[in-house]
Design a protein around this nucleic acid. Sequence first.
DNA 1: ATGGTTGAACCTCAA
Length: 261
Amino acid sequence: MIAIATWNVNSIKSRLAHLLDWLRNEKPDIVLLQELKCINENFPAMEIEDLGYNLAVHGEKTYNGVAILSKFPLSDIQKGLPGDDTDIQSRYIEAVVNLPGAAIRVASVYVPNGQMTDSDKYQYKLRFLNRLHAHFKTLLTYDEILVVGGDYNIAPTDDDVHNPKLWQGSVLTHDDVRSAWRRMEYLGMYSAFRIKPAGDTRFSWWDYRAGALERDDGLLIDHLLLSPQAADRTQSCFVYKNLRMLEKASDHTPVIAMLAA
DNA sequence: ATGGTTGAACCTCAA
């Protein structure tokens, strides 16, 4: 079994102790990280490599930043989401993980939050999702085992929201972004948690504000999207809530898929 | 308390 996790750490520097403990205890094979909030030079590569991981890092000062950690060798590393050369934000990284006798293409994506539906950032989010759709269309022609994990900043249905009324029309639940999500599904990308849910936790993110965690005011916005070849191998998908319960936690917690391999 | 917290970097922005 191969464990593939996605986790928005909200600053790799602030979350390093949590990350290292988790890697030591759970030993996920592949980890897709978002919101590093650091440039490549400041990424704590040695500490993570010491635990047996190979790295691909696409950092940025202050904001964004994505990375791939893998127990197996990486090749064909690509940084940046195709489709707009003027977009310099570090929100996408892709690589091939070379398992013995098999290869898995993986990517870590940090979809823009969008802030407010009347903001320019929301338009950027919708354009980004269009580019992601186009890229998935290309990737699916490869007929590979493909896993794209990340913070999609989309709660695909009201089942993914603790209190749907409270979140109605927000940038995380708006019809526009849900429609964009479904377009990716219709291409043939399957949500791991949708097809093989396991465990008791339905959400992956709780706001720091207003006691959201205490009220379980959570949303499932971190997802692992799978090609048909990856979906066939997926045995289960669950949220690892422990990391949200710690002192100085990220506001997101890992989502993990188990693939037969 | 016209909402609250966290992180990075700056005296505010993004989430």
